[in-house]
Design a protein around this nucleic acid. Structure first.
Length: 124
RNA sequence: GUAGUGAGCCGGGCGAUCGCUGUCCGCCUACGCCCCUUACGGGGCUACGGCGCGAGAGAGGAAAGUCCGAACUCCACAGGGCAAUGCGCCGGGUAACACCCGGGCGGGGCGACCCGACGGAAAGUGGCACAGAAAACAAACCACCCGCCGUAGCUCGCAAGAGCGAAGGUGGGAACGGGUGAAAAGGUGGAGUAAAAGCCCACCGCGCGGCUGGCAACAGACGUGGCAGGCCAAACCCCGCAUGGAGCAAGACCAAAUAGGGAAGCUGAUCGAACGGCCCGUUCGCGCUUCCGGGUAGGUUGCUGGAUCCCGUCAGCAAUGCCGGGACUAGAGGAAUGAUCGCUGUCCCCCGCCGCGCGCAAGCGCCAAGGGGGAACAGAAUUCGGCUUACAGGCUCACUGCAGCA
RNA sequence: UGGGGCGUGGCCAAGCGGUAAGGCGCCGGCCUUUGGAGCCGGUAUUCGAAGGUUCGAAUCCUUCCGCCCCAA
């Protein structure tokens, strides 16, 4: 019964509300000033911030499919971010493409990581 | 067994790991609030902040299309009329409806059953191309029949002349026929006539009248009329009924920063304007401080317990309603309700050991152990009631036709 | 989520109950040495789709499909 300190740190693979990019103005800022690169399955924008946690925003447009398909894409991207969360204060916006729906999870994961590490290269 | 009809229901299951959003419980904290203190500081409380291997919940039958009807908000509004829009057999149900139930009528099916925007064209206006004699005052035209006149012609006569008489003319009969056309003033058969016609007769259809049944739509039998006069109202319209407009991005509350508005005060030692020739002075502007209201970002609320769902009694053919008992059943907000695996049920597709049948054979067909792949339409956004559309596969009940057996 | 609008040849379009104008383009011919211009002829439109009303529908009605705009 020595459970008073109870360390049991919460899992790092979470996705809290404060880790969402929510406001339209923030999305527009990231689109405008962030670093953009495209893959076969998705397009990614990233922008570094002053501090705070890494954040994710997902923009699934109506062009990519109906509501069920858009939801599916958003859940996949959320899951990727949850498992491969960047340590730095970084805003990430992912625009999934229609091809993502037919791809396997491993393939989407590989492309997500590939696009995320491209950020490390100097962008200017 | 097979083919079908109607009604109702399901929309894979179990488990592991890692997550998301509310609710409840417990705990932890503050740059928040309260108390003590001159102050430093100390104490307490609470969460829209966190934590918990805490408890429990978490997409649909269409959540969809947004086609109707409401609730709920704000705006407008004395009353009445017009306009506009919608609905349209009758009765009932309902908060309401374009929905549902029952009935009538019409149509389809051997049948169980299914389908129907189904008021009015003797209130008015308008349209009906082409074709056709004519397309909507029912008359004209052609053809038909009869009488008369009578040309050509024929016959008779020696002749004068007479008779018959196509065509044509004229007077009447009759409203039958007229290639067409989507549609042209009942249908079939008979009788009748110079030729014909509801002119007359039988049956069917139709109109009118009261009677009977029914709340009614309507139906039935009876009597009566020889027959009214096309179609289109998803053309304008008439009749009856209904309807104010916008929509939760409605609306309500709290409320930064910046700019601007109002009020009070302050300095006029600075600047500008007015009253003055000038100074002082007064007033206004400008400046500073404080306060006030509107209001943007943002936040809170509206926001889920309701015309709610389940079970039962009773009323009713039913839709449904009354009563009683029980349940709490998603509430997100760049938008949660999941991700990845394992086992497995059902169905479909592909390969296919063994076995069986056919064939001389290559091979083909049936059954099928096993292996691989796939799994419908589709995601709540203020909330309900409907409609419509999409949908792999499956289950239950009732009924109908056909075939077989007893 | 709510509200509003539009679909007619390859493109821009008129027509709104009687059998689909016009322009640009494209193709062929004439003309010209050739090209352009000009002239003549032709374009594969089930009028977005399916039902219904009507004798007859691009037009009227219903239901779907696609696209666009407005309101954070």
């Amino acid at each position: 019964m020595s459970a008073s300190p109870k360390p049991h740190a919460p899992s790092p693979h979470r996705f809290l509300a404060r880790e969402h990019v929510r406001k339209r103005a923030e999305f527009e800022l990231i689109y405008k000033t962030g670093f953009k690169r495209s893959g076969r399955l998705m397009t990614m924008f990233t922008m570094e911030r002053e501090g705070g946690p890494a954040r994710l925003g997902i923009a699934a447009t109506r062009k990519m499919g109906a509501a069920v398909e858009r939801n599916r894409a958003k859940r996949l991207v959320r899951e990727l971010f949850r498992h491969h969360k960047p340590a730095a204060a970084l805003d990430v916006v992912v625009v999934p493409r229609r091809e993502m729906l037919d791809a396997s999870y491993d393939r989407i994961e590989a492309e997500f990581l590939s696009l995320l590490t491209k950020r490390m290269k100097p962008n200017g």
